[in-house]
Design a protein around this nucleic acid. Structure first.
Length: 263
DNA sequence: CCGGATGTTCACCT
DNA sequence: GAGGTGAACATCCG
């Protein structure tokens, strides 16, 4: 499920645990610790300290931990394609889109006990990860905050497809495949257009649609609640203009758009 | 059996 | 360096 909307819900669910002590951190899957090759033992130094804050950058959930004596740690959580955050076995997100109908506790790849609560990352496909002190600066502009002139600067001089740019976390952090398609659909821009070919007006529209789309879908409950989402299937017609929906890989991801109104 | 799935990373080209 | 492609990761679903 996780694009920035879902990760923000996870963050909000975790936030009430601020002030509590991190009592243990365990992994059922060593590979869940990143970067690859990092020993699980590095998390030993974190245990016994206090969760002081939660934050988020794009799809990266950040858990700030301190012992009040100058030692500060940041634990980064990534949720991959099917990762969910559960607190005492309950997820803030119940509506699973692509995850299995099953909900197997064996998929808890990482488990944190914080203030007596069991916080786990339940991830069927194991594409999520946990990283101590992740490089936050490697991520681009937070998508929910991108201004028109910032987006214009990102697009300027780039030949890659605008959708590929929207998905490039080093440039713009937070949008995933569904949000990128929905945003372009709302902005009436074709996903395969070269980013550098967008006019200043189009950049302005797109930046605006990023903001409004994220807000609207957050209210509705997830990245899969976009107006164009039901049309992500073969033979579908555009819900806005009844044009034919097109399907192709753009930026390495499955992409759907309306051939009639997205130009 | 095969293809595809809200993600990231890496190798390998051009 | 920019950008594209494909594979890999691991698992389930249609």
């Amino acid at each position: 499920m996780p694009e920035l909307i879902e990760v923000e819900q996870y963050r909000a669910a975790l936030d009430p645990l601020c002030g509590q002590t991190v009592e243990s951190i365990t992994f059922s899957d060593r590979q869940f610790v990143r970067p690859r090759g990092t020993p699980v033992e590095v998390f030993g130094q974190v245990v016994g300290n206090e969760l002081v804050a939660t934050s988020r950058r794009g799809k990266l959930l950040l858990v700030h931990i301190s012992n009040g004596l100058g030692d500060a740690f940041v634990v980064g959580m990534r949720f991959g394609m099917t990762g969910r955050l559960l607190i005492d076995g309950v997820s803030p997100i119940e509506n699973l889109e692509y995850a299995s109908a099953r909900n197997d506790p064996a998929w808890d790849r990482a488990v944190f006990v914080i203030g007596g609560k069991r916080v786990s990352i339940r991830d069927q496909r194991r594409l999520g990860s946990v990283e101590l002190d992740p490089d936050i600066e490697a991520l681009g502009v937070e998508a929910t905050l991108v201004a028109a002139d910032q987006l214009e600067a990102l697009c300027s001089g780039r030949t890659k497809a605008i959708k590929a740019l929207l998905l490039d976390q080093q440039l713009l952090a937070g949008l995933g495949n569904l949000l990128a398609d929905e945003t372009l659909w709302q902005a009436e821009i074709a996903p395969h257009r070269s980013a550098g070919a967008l006019s200043p007006d189009e950049c302005k529209t797109l930046a605006h649609e990023i903001q409004t789309t994220v807000k609207r879908l957050s209210t509705r409950g997830g990245s899969h609640t976009g107006d164009s989402f039901p049309a992500r299937r073969a033979g579908a017609l555009c819900p806005r203009c009844t044009g034919q929906m097109e399907h192709r890989t753009v930026g390495g991801r499955s992409t759907w758009w309306c051939a009639a109104h997205q130009r």
